[in-house]
Design a protein around this nucleic acid. Structure first.
Length: 280
DNA sequence: AGTGTATCCTGCAGGC
DNA sequence: TGCCTGCAGGATACAC
């Protein structure tokens, strides 16, 4: 479900509480989206300390350390990808930590519980070595909110591809962290039709797309993400950005800029939303 | 090489 | 009420 702003919101919700906590007990409830297989994950994570919590693209990253052999020794990383309906929820010592579709529970040394819950189980919870994770991260494109993602980087990337603009934006090797909602929203802000070949986007439009991406992602982070159905942050709170969407899910409704009816088309196996008047 | 399609899974909305 | 179909914010294995 969640794209960059939703994952960022989860991380911000966890950051004040997790670093320095030790995982006392791991309980794997569904094994199919956990790696390595159940017992091995438990062995790798149990007794370790969560050093920090951060985000890379749509992946939540928690480096581990501690245990026998040294308190600051690298013990690999615990990574969580929320897929479509994943939730990473933090419960306090006195909360009821039961959820509808639990996959893994991490009991913490303060009595709290971190639960990964996922209705559709498209997500993934993994322990991996630090170098494996770094290699995986290196295959992802730039973070769209970083300085490294300049408009010229976007221009050069687009120029090298004839993929539809929306498909290009969803490819995590090109820009990391976008999903269908924010790709559609940014294209609206840039006045670019979602199906337009990437290489045909003009320089002026590239600048508008670059600004639109940063703007819509920043505003969505500020709003705690978009909740359409399932998404909630680490403490169970829904996002507040959905009412501000301009085209996503608004087919049949008037464009907020010109009043023309927003349309929906399907390509690449998923819906694209656009205003036929504002986007060419 | 670079695209598009099908697929994993469950829940829900809408049509009949 | 119940049954059916289509659709959903992701990523990947495969076909062309």
């Amino acid at each position: 479900m969640p794209e960059l702003p939703e994952v960022e919101t989860v991380v911000r919700g966890l950051a004040p509480h997790l670093p320095g906590r030790t995982v006392d007990r791991v309980t794997v409830i569904r094994t199919d989206i956990v790696a390595p297989s159940g017992r091995a994950l438990t062995r790798r994570v149990q007794g370790r300390t969560l050093e920090s919590v951060s985000r890379r693209a749509k992946t939540i990253v928690m480096p581990l350390q501690g245990g026998p052999g040294g308190q600051t020794k690298d013990r690999g990383v615990l990574t969580v990808h929320l897929g479509m309906t994943g939730r990473l929820l933090l419960f306090g010592p006195h909360d009821d930590a039961r959820t509808g579709h639990p996959v893994v529970r991490f009991r913490l040394n303060d009595g709290g519980t971190l639960v990964y819950d996922d209705i559709r189980r498209f997500g993934r919870v993994a322990w991996e070595t630090t170098s494996d994770w770094q290699a995986r991260s290196a295959r992802l494109g730039p973070e769209p909110l970083s300085r490294a993602f300049s408009w010229t980087v976007l221009r050069d990337g687009l120029a090298a591809s004839r993929a539809p603009a929306r498909s290009w934006l969803l490819d995590q090797r090109r820009v990391a962290g976008l999903g269908n909602i924010y790709a559609n929203e940014a294209l609206f802000l840039a006045g670019v039709h979602p199906i337009r070949p990437a290489r045909d986007i003009t320089e002026v439009e590239v600048q508008a797309l670059h600004a639109g991406l940063k703007r819509t992602l920043r505003n969505a982070v500020r709003g705690g993400g978009t909740t359409l159905r399932d998404y909630v942050g680490a403490t169970g709170e829904p996002g507040r950005y959905a009412p501000r969407l301009r085209v996503y899910g608004r087919d049949g409704h008037p464009c907020r800029t010109c009043g023309e009816t927003v349309e929906r088309i399907v390509f690449g196996g998923r819906s694209a939303f656009f205003c036929p008047n504002c986007q060419i």
